[in-house]
């Protein structure tokens, strides 16, 4: 009864004009604060950043228009080139390892045995720990003098390592720490995805004589491919924006070996106060992120077909 009456009153043709305009007022009253805050603090800054990238600006005095000079300087800046290289190396190591590792661990955790809840909790819990806390913890664990890592190496009769003070080790160590905290996210998303893999399909493959590994390879992994594409995109975007962990552990060092793009952007804006130059670098990164996002969306659509 209620639904019949309801359908009648909600029919747009029977709505008097005043009703519609008052709805518009209510609608805008509800969304107004959010729209204003979100667009005000994103669209305005995006345009402002673009303008800044054509200027010389120290965040204090009036800025000067320089056209494309910032972008030209960026292309030739060996420090920026190195930052891009470090970021790509980190991304190429971290993203596949966290996604493949996440899938393997999710498959291992996708069974009903004793303590499985505890195992899942422990694998996931590092994900909620902040990058600052991770950085401070591992600075201690890996402290060459007082850290437990060198203490363990000593007990095993192995030579002490420099860790974060060794330019060859710092970046791989950041990858390892990120894997410790970031793989759990992939595990959780894959576990949720695994619940959607058709049990009948798996059963059918089994009956057709497929072994466990064949079922994984030909049924489970293909069924999870939308999840995999999402995770690759999500992890890549996160990896390219690495900053907090670097700031806390190495400050871009030693010898600049861990200066990543966002660290470069932050340093240029808020340490050397060359905001225009920094905005140009930020735009270069944003365009790269957008291209990756679009490319993955297209490949996702193709995979869905």
């Amino acid at each position: 009864m209620a639904s019949v009456v309801g359908t009648f009153t909600l029919d747009p043709r029977t709505k008097p004009k005043r009703r519609i305009s008052s709805d518009s007022a209510t609608g805008w009253a509800f969304v107004g604060p959010s729209v204003l805050l979100i667009l005000g603090l994103s669209v305005v800054p995006v345009v402002w950043s673009l303008l800044l990238s054509f200027q010389v600006n120290d965040l204090v005095s009036p800025s000067e228009w320089v056209g494309l000079a910032n972008y030209k300087a960026l292309v030739q800046d060996p420090a920026f080139g190195a930052a891009v290289q470090h970021t790509l190396l980190y991304t190429v190591l971290y993203v596949p390892l966290s996604v493949v590792g996440g899938l393997a661990i999710a498959i291992a955790l996708d069974r009903k045995i004793k303590f499985i809840g505890l195992y899942r909790t422990l694998v996931f819990v590092p994900f909620v720990v902040s990058a600052a806390a991770q950085g401070v913890l591992f600075s201690f664990v890996l402290d060459p003098e007082f850290g437990v890592a060198n203490s363990l190496l000593h007990k095993l009769g192995l030579p002490a390592q420099g860790f974060f003070s060794d330019p060859g080790q710092a970046l791989p160590l950041l990858v390892v720490i990120s894997l410790w905290s970031g793989t759990g996210f992939c595990v959780i998303v894959y576990l949720a995805g695994l619940q959607g893999v058709s049990a009948e399909l798996v059963e059918a493959a089994r009956i057709d004589g497929a072994g466990r590994f064949a079922v994984l390879r030909h049924v489970v992994v293909p069924a999870l491919s939308p999840v995999t594409v999402f995770l690759l995109l999500f992890q890549t975007i996160n990896a390219l924006q690495l900053f907090d962990l670097v700031f806390v552990t190495t400050k871009g060092g030693p010898l600049g070996s861990t200066t990543v793009i966002v660290y470069f952007i932050w340093e240029k804006a808020f340490k050397s106060f060359t905001a225009g130059y920094s905005a140009a670098a930020a735009y270069a990164l944003a365009v790269a992120l957008l291209v990756i996002g679009i490319a993955l969306q297209i490949s996702r659509r193709r995979a869905a077909r």
Binding site: L39, S42, V43, P45, S49, V262, A279, A282
Partner: peptide, 25 residues
């Protein structure tokens, strides 16, 4: 309400803006 689709679309579009781009402004 008038403009709801545009407002929602624009708001969702801002989700792809990386923080580094907006932090200085």
């Amino acid at each position: 309400f008038a403009g709801s689709k545009v407002a929602l679309g624009m708001m969702l579009a801002t989700m792809v803006i990386p923080f580094q781009l907006t932090m200085i402004p």
